[in-house]
């Protein structure tokens, strides 16, 4: 069960899952959507058009602009799903109109990288 919908929308797509929080400003290329932090478990992967499942956003407040830029550059995830919502991800998704869901612990655990799923 999705616990909460922060930004509404219906999406179907492939899960890209990380078990590490994401610093959007510091570790996501706003043009391509590639993860640039070599220490991150999504390093080298692209998040464009995926359903990005991760615990929560961290770090710079400007990460909200990174999310908005990803959308403008057609490199944004189709949706995001988190364990808990932080202000950077919530506001970035709200402005960029990227559906954002908060998942229950069971649902979060059951989602696997590469799964085809529908949300919303």
């Amino acid at each position: 069960m999705t616990l909460k919908t922060i930004v509404r929308g219906k999406v179907t797509g492939k899960v890209v899952k990380s078990n590490q929080p994401i610093n959007f400003l510091g570790s996501v290329d706003k043009k391509t959507g590639a993860i640039t932090d070599q220490k991150h478990d999504l390093f080298g992967k692209k998040i464009a058009d995926s359903i990005l499942v991760f615990p929560n956003g961290i770090g710079s407040s400007v990460g909200a602009y990174t999310i908005y830029s990803l959308k403008s550059n057609n490199s944004a995830p189709a949706a995001m799903a988190c364990q808990k919502a932080d202000l950077t991800v919530a506001s970035g998704c709200a402005l960029a109109n990227i559906p954002l869901f908060i998942l229950s612990p069971d649902e979060y655990d059951s989602m696997k990288d590469g799964d085809e799923i529908s949300l919303g």
């Binding site: 770090g59 710079s60 407040s61 400007v62 990460g63 909200a64 602009y65 908005y68 932080d86 202000l87 950077t88 919530a90 506001s91 970035g92 709200a94 402005l95």
Partner: peptide, 24 residues
């Protein structure tokens, strides 16, 4: 929004702010 300033404001300045995002 600036994270160091938000934490400084809460911790040293005893003000009330969340760790705001650029947009919030």
């Amino acid at each position: 929004a600036e994270t160091n300033a938000a934490i400084y404001a809460n911790s040293i300045g005893k003000l009330k702010t969340n760790k705001e995002s650029a947009f919030s």
